[in-house]
């Protein structure tokens, strides 16, 4: 899966992630909380950053898959190597990119 399609896949969940952030206590934020507009969302090679309430939130969602929840539900992953040789998510986070890291698992389930 290319980074572009990864970006589009994650973008569909941005409203849900924003809604989750919106339910957190006000004291966690430094500014009035405003949902990011699409053009405010940065995607630099392999990291999606949502600006929200004065925080830069790095976003990573794990795709659904058979048995994934049981196997990976207590893990978080950080991209550490790119074939392109570009700076990785791990390197960017280490040098100070982002304030928070939102890591979520997409599951598939029945909803009416």
């Amino acid at each position: 899966m290319s980074f572009d399609s990864n970006f589009r896949w994650q973008m569909q969940y941005v409203p849900k992630v924003t809604a989750i952030l919106g339910e957190l206590p006000n004291r966690l934020f430094t500014q009035t909380r405003v949902a990011p507009r699409e053009r405010d969302i940065k995607y630099n090679t392999d990291v999606m950053i949502l600006p929200y309430g004065g925080k830069d939130v790095a976003l990573r969602l794990r795709r659904p898959g058979k048995g994934y929840f049981a196997r990976y539900g207590l893990q978080f992953t950080i991209r550490s190597k790119l074939d392109s040789g570009a700076e990785t998510e791990l390197a960017k986070l280490r040098r100070g990119l982002g304030d928070w890291f939102f890591y979520g698992h997409i599951e598939e389930g029945w909803e009416p």
Partner: peptide, 22 residues
């Protein structure tokens, strides 16, 4: 209908995580 659902998530403080990763 089977739908994608986001119910399992964590929000980590990257300042703490950065220290941890070093």
């Amino acid at each position: 209908m089977i739908r994608p659902i986001l119910r399992h998530w964590v929000l980590l403080d990257l300042d703490v995580l950065r220290l941890w990763l070093t």
